[in-house]
Design a protein around this nucleic acid. Sequence first.
DNA 1: TTCAAAAAGTGATGAATGTCATTTTTTACG
DNA 2: CGTAAAAAATGACATTCATCACTTTTTGAA
Lengths: 239, 239
Amino acid sequence: MSTKKNIRIPCTLCPGKEHSLFSELPKDDLDALSQHKTCIRYKKGQTLFYEGTRPMGLFCINSGKVKVYKISSEGKEQILKLAKSGDFLGYRALISEEFYNSSATVIEEGAMCYIPKSDFLEILHKNPAFFRKMAKRVAHELGLMEQKLVTIAQKSVRERLAATLIMLKETYGMEGEESDLIDIALSREDLANIIGTATETVIRLLSDFKSQKLISLQGKKIKVLNHKGLIREADFYGR
Amino acid sequence: MSTKKNIRIPCTLCPGKEHSLFSELPKDDLDALSQHKTCIRYKKGQTLFYEGTRPMGLFCINSGKVKVYKISSEGKEQILKLAKSGDFLGYRALISEEFYNSSATVIEEGAMCYIPKSDFLEILHKNPAFFRKMAKRVAHELGLMEQKLVTIAQKSVRERLAATLIMLKETYGMEGEESDLIDIALSREDLANIIGTATETVIRLLSDFKSQKLISLQGKKIKVLNHKGLIREADFYGR
DNA sequence: TTCAAAAAGTGATGAATGTCATTTTTTACG
DNA sequence: CGTAAAAAATGACATTCATCACTTTTTGAA
């Protein structure tokens, strides 16, 4: 295992780079971004940024997993998205020139890089191709968010749970043999906060799915036993 | 009244221009956009574009009102936003280089301009300040959509209806004396499709609000009698 | 290893809201 | 106008799901 010291490697050598928005950036630009970045290990439960505060830079997830969420006026958490290695956080607020409208907290320990706002904006405005790529990404995410809205507005909790499990399997399924195991340690409460329901309801529905042999529960992690069955639950149940 | 012919005026002279994303565009660019645009009157019920089709240009609403919505797999409509004079439609898909992910249908007759994709993209890529402004807008809308998601996921239907009425009053309230009258002809069904509920539920809650003297119903249009009361309903009811 | 705290799970209950069936009112068109 | 069709309204009923109260299991830190 590596030591905790000196986890700061150049962006050019970052393993997550290839799949990230930085993938096609020229070396010069990447070096410029690397220059003033800081990289810190975050433990589970630590928060990267809070809703309502001013963004001062861009987070890049080197390793680990993060939940991005809003707290409603009643104090309930709604998870907007999950982020993993290679993902960026905070660019929406930087581009819209607003405060953060969500918070981000680590759910699986890992290393996060932080690129100062000025460096990021400089590259953004200097490199039109990169700006287009970022704009394209934000526009794409708006489309995703619209789809999520429709799902929450119109599907039952049961359907949403099934759909969420499918999505999680696609995003966090292991490689090869164990591809049915959803490799992310979400608490039942987190799962409920993705779906927009009560923790107890998630627990009940999960054991329902389990007794239907759609999934199996291995401690915290969930294994998908019947993918097609889950898809059926997600699309049609009860309506 | 003007005739139906020749409703095509230059963008430079468009009354909605001042409040639109085009407000700070140099005259040259505006003229370029004007060049190949077409302007057509649309009647209530006519559709500007359909979900799943390829965008070939940008719509600009000269007058009238439009609903933008998605149809869920069960065939139910979910309204994502309402658009009025000066608003643009279709730029998300143009920027993300995707098909439309929503449909747009006229709910109040009016004139719509249509700027070919190539002209719009040319200005967008020629004028970095304008591109930034568009990107900023999309990022801002992503923030709004995230907020809507939380509202739908966590607030009761009653709260959402109250919140929607407040929003409608702010956006479509008349000038001066009659500022409490919500000047948009939404059917109960449309209102239900904004909120994400059944038409009957909206009808019942509206008459509830009416008997509480929060609103009055003047045919299709709604008048807000007790703004603070509605805000209270929107924030706290029942939780 | 132990023990307290957190998370998961279970059961009972009621309120909110969806659905269906029907009536009344409004709209729009010939 | 008159009439058919659409929209609004109302009632009865079924269902989902949130809530609360509690038990069991797991976790993690001393």
